[in-house]
Every structure is written in structure tokens, then in C-alpha cells.
Design a protein around this nucleic acid. Structure first.
Lengths: 196, 196
DNA sequence: CTATCTCTAGAACCTTGTTCTAGAACTTTG
DNA sequence: CAAAGTTCTAGAACAAGGTTCTAGAGATAG
């Protein structure tokens, strides 16, 4: 691999890592171009060369974090055999990510609106689509067998992740929530909403 | 009522209305102090006199919009007799608000993060607490009677509004979702997750 | 009537995202 | 190997938007 290209990749990675670190340490308030540049040890010019804008950097970081989260969820789902255990796997993977990699989770939730910025929507959609498709495909036979209720895809998705996402958002923002207890109780409740 | 105080109230109201109008027309991008001031016909000094900061204005508007939404939900819940119809009433009221008063709903969802800004968190919590308490109180006898599952309050809340909130967020951002159809299908699914 | 207090006004300021120009480092080609 | 071209890095200058400040107009109280 060409040296130049590798250095570029390295710079991109350093900027993304620095961005996550700054966001975790200073919150949305302190999350600024200049802070990220200082933390990364890279220049402002490089940031704009690689990401085009600060939103571009944020979108790239969002994409990276979200991809990791979805990959963990898809992997957990792949290990499940029954739809009920699949639901439990998804919830556990999601909440596990939130608990163990809270910097990533915090960034995802803080910039949820970014997923809809027109400029970057298609990049994010392109990352999500295949992963969501794998989940849909996993569910399909169980729907066909009559074990899982047959709803429009977005609704199934909402029932599955809506409560978990909202719960995570609150926990990340300091609400008094017992996450392990929630991880025990929620899956069967969500499963009840999906059972045919 | 003193004239001066009434004029102050009027100015506050004009600023809040202008803020909602600007946000609806120009989106989060164009939602700036200067734009709000221009739209309202009031001066910048007045804005800072009454709200302290731009975030203060946003928090006040969020509080007002959220209070209206919650009041509609609580009112709808009050008219319901069975827990199942209560769930349907809540979902219908929420989605109705989103469909009919989308400027308000859009602002609520766009500034969801604002609910956690330390500076304004307690104001918002003070608005929410009594309304949430009314919902909890409505549910209590049904839980006692064994008709509704007994979970920690936040979890019940998540199961009830999580899917609806997430669905609304996507619809507001242009996702291809059939809202009336969702309003028909969701309530019984959510009810299934809450049924004991 | 005058003193004071609240509200209104908008210019000046400062932080933060973006652009611009220059130059360094690597790759390719004659 | 040398020179041209390309990509990447650098940081100063710029622009836009949030905040502060000083001043003055209008209402209320003594």
C-alpha cells in the first residue's frame, strides 16, 4: 500500500479518535473543530481536506460508531436460534454496547439528528441498509412460520429498538435507571409485542 | 394586571411564536437568534432580558410544546376506561399531535437533547413530573388488579412511548412511513408488551 | 414631579466553523 | 535520477452567529 495513502488513513483515524475523545471529555458544548484539531495533533487544513466540514467529520464518526453497534447486534442475532432468544440477544447487545463503550453510545445518541442531515444521509443509509437487511432476513422465516407478527418493517424495527434506544438515551444522560435490571426485564416484554 | 408586566408577557409570547415559526420554516440550520429577533419584530436585548440565552429561549419553547403534547396525552388517557384503550388513546394522541401540529412536534424532536442540558433540566423536569404522575396514577389500579405488568416506572414509560417517539422522529424526517396505518397497528402491539 | 425600576434597543464583541494560500512529501514519468 | 504533478499538511485570515454592554424610553411609587 502506498505510503501517502497510509498516512492519509492514519490522519483520518487520528481525527476520528480525537473527535470521540473530545466529545466524551467535553460534551457537545466543547466539541469544536479547534478542540479536535488540538487533541489530534493534526492541522485544521487536514481536517477539512479529509472530511470537508466539521459536520462531515461528525457524520463519519457517527457512521463508524453506528456500524460497530449494528455489527455487534447483527453478530449477536446470528448466534440466536429462536426469535425470542433473538430479541434477547439484540437487547443485550445494544445495552452492552451502551454500558461498555459509552463514549461511542453517547456520541451516537447526541448526534442522532445528524442521521437526517441531507448532506450525509445517504452515506449513513448506505452503512445501515445491509445490516438492517440481515436482521430482516433473520426474522423472515419466523414471520413466515407464524411465530412473529407480520408488520411493515419500520414498525417491527420500532417495537424492537424504540424502547431500548429511549432507555439508553436517558441512562446516558444520568437518569436513575438500573441498566442490568432493565436488560433482564425488557427482552420478554419486547418479545411479547412481536409475538404473533 | 400591571401594563408593564403584560407587555413583558406579550414580548415573551411573540418571541416563542417567532422561534417556532423560524424553526419550522428554516429548520435547525436557520434557527438563529438574529432570525428569531427579525421574525418577532422584537429586539435582541429583549430576547436576552427575558430568556437569558438562546438556549434559554429554546428550553422555554421546548417546555411549552412538550407541555401541550403531554396535556393532550393525559387528557386522552383520562377519557379511557380500560388499560388497552388507554394505550390506544396515548398512541393516537401522540401521533395526532405529530400529524396535526408538526411544527411543534418537529421542534420537540429536534431539541430532544436540550432536555438534558443541565441549565434547564430542572425546569423541564418540573413541567413533566406532575403530568407523568397523572399517567402513573391512572395505570396504578390496573397494575394492582393484575391486568398490567408491574415494572419500574421508567420501563413502562419506555415500552409505551419508545416506539411511538422513534416512529415520529423518522416520519418527521421524511422517512417513508404510513402514519395512519401505524396508528392502527401499533397500539395493540404495545398493549401486548404491557399486558400482565 | 422626580426617582427608580423594568423593558427595549441595537451596536460591538468573541467564539467557532470555514476558506485560502503556501509549502512539504511522496509518486510518476521522461 | 530529475523534474513535474499530486496529495497532504499547515496555520493565518475570514465570516457567521451567540453574547454582552451601554443607553434610553416608558411605567410605577413616593
Amino acid at each position: 500500500m502506498p505510503v501517502k495513502q497510509r498516512r492519509g488513513e492514519e490522519t483520518r483515524r487520528r481525527l476520528l479518535d480525537a473527535a470521540l475523545a473530545v466529545h466524551a471529555a467535553a460534551g457537545t458544548e466543547g466539541f469544536t473543530v479547534h478542540a479536535v484539531v488540538a487533541e489530534s495533533g493534526v492541522s485544521l487544513g487536514s481536517l477539512y481536506h479529509h472530511f470537508g466540514s466539521f459536520d462531515g467529520l461528525a457524520a463519519a464518526l457517527y457512521t463508524r460508531c453506528m456500524a460497530e453497534l449494528l455489527d455487534e447486534i447483527v453478530a449477536a442475532l446470528g448466534r440466536a436460534r429462536t426469535p425470542r432468544s433473538g430479541v434477547r440477544a439484540v437487547v443485550t447487545a445494544y445495552l452492552g454496547h451502551v454500558a461498555e463503550r459509552s463514549a461511542s453510545a453517547r456520541f451516537i445518541h447526541a448526534s442522532a439528528y445528524a442521521a437526517y442531515l441531507p448532506a450525509h444521509a445517504e452515506t449513513i443509509a448506505a452503512m445501515k441498509a445491509p445490516r438492517m437487511a440481515r436482521m430482516t432476513a433473520w426474522l423472515a422465516p419466523h414471520i413466515a412460520a407464524g411465530a412473529v407478527v407480520d408488520l411493515p418493517d419500520p414498525l417491527t424495527e420500532m417495537l424492537l429498538i424504540g424502547p431500548v434506544a429511549e432507555l439508553s438515551r436517558r441512562w446516558l444522560n444520568g437518569a436513575d435507571i438500573d441498566l442490568p435490571r432493565a436488560a433482564k426485564l425488557l427482552p420478554d416484554r419486547i418479545w411479547a409485542s412481536l409475538q404473533a
